[in-house]
Amino acid sequence: MKNQIYRVYEAIKLDPLASQQALADRLGMSRESVAGHIMQLTRQGYILGKGYLLAEQNTYVVIGGANVDINGHSSAVLTTHDSNPGTISQSPGGVGRNIAENLARLGEHVHLIASIGLDQRGNWLIEQTRASGVETHNILRHDTLPTGTYLAINNDSGQLQAAIADMRIIDTLDAQKLSSKQALLQSAYSIIIDANLSSDTIEWLARQSLSAQLVADAVSTAKAPRLRPILAKLTLLKVNQDEARAILDSNETDPNKLAKALLDAGVDEVLLSLGSQGVLFTSAEHSQQKICYPTVPVSDTGAGDALLAGYLSACQQNKSLDDSLSFALACAAMTLESAHANYPELTVQNVTQWIEKL
């Protein structure tokens, strides 16, 4: 920023509610000059909106699914086509929302952009998300469609057996609605999207001139191909092997070859989940595989979301690649041992202590 614009920016930081005339008097400028500098700061993403909400460094903006998870956990060997004894719980969910919550619990500054119904379930979901530390004032409310719901059935080992996802509402998160969030997108350090978004919305985001890193989670084999047109825009792609094959339209079984093919398609870095075998990180400069920590899984819902959030948080902590992967796997392991999609005690200190105890 040039000197006068910088002075205006610093004055707003000291008094965000000051009028343009008050700022002008304080700085010895005309009100018209101050107004022009504020307009320029807004266009550049340093000011996010009314009241001079200022952009912050290292801000994550997560755009994607937010829904209520209803989890059924069988207490004995699951019998199909029959009623099974067990427990049922409700918790906040959605890939994008889960990633946002995990990042916030790990101390990162996170805004969530999602579409949520104007209903009681939606109110509860926003309250729960806000309580975890996520900025929720950019969430969009829909007055006709219900809040998204994810119904999961897990066996007695905590493994997902079947699920139904009512995610119709996410298709309303389109380019027109996201255009109203341009100032926030312009100010972001990193924008994280999940493949629950429609293909049109994903491609619209990729066409925007944004300075932020673009990170994507492939979500599922059915939705992962939506990311094909934007692979060359991605700083980081988190996938499992089935999702990678779906994106590449390939039958390849070698994880290293899958990751290499994604790099060849334009992705800068690939975080490839290998399930019980751990994770493989690949970039043009580095390739490293790391095995999982031993766990007693309760539910595998949300473990992949914790893996991605943990890796991003570790990078912010300036950890080495090896330590970053260890931290990410620990976040996933702690989530696996939780009954919910997000481990409620996920903090940098707790994850670090968890690793040290092994």
Score class of each variant (00 low, 15 high):
G72D: 05
Y6R: 13
D264Q: 12
T295Q: 01
A162D: 11
Q288K: 11
D217Y: 00
V68M: 15
V62C: 06
K13M: 14
Q349N: 13
L205R: 00
S273N: 11
S83P: 07
N71H: 06
G117K: 05
L112D: 01
Q182D: 12
G117I: 01
I170A: 04
H37F: 15
G65S: 14
A35F: 14
E269C: 10
S283D: 08
Q159R: 10
A314Q: 07
L214E: 05
I38N: 10
V239I: 13
G122P: 11
E101D: 10
W124C: 09
I139N: 06
L214A: 07
A341N: 07
H111E: 15
H111M: 12
D119T: 00
L17C: 09
S338G: 03
Y9M: 12
P16R: 10
E10L: 13
Y343C: 11
S187G: 12
R31P: 14
H37C: 15
E252Q: 13
G64P: 05
L325K: 03
A224M: 02
Y150E: 09
L263P: 03
Q241L: 03
S211A: 06
G158N: 02
Q186L: 12
W354P: 03
V134R: 10
I126D: 10
G158F: 01
D305S: 05
C331G: 06
H142E: 08
A104E: 05
K50I: 11
Q90L: 14
L308R: 09
Q241F: 01
L329A: 04
G304H: 03
L112A: 04
G278L: 11
H137G: 13
A303N: 00
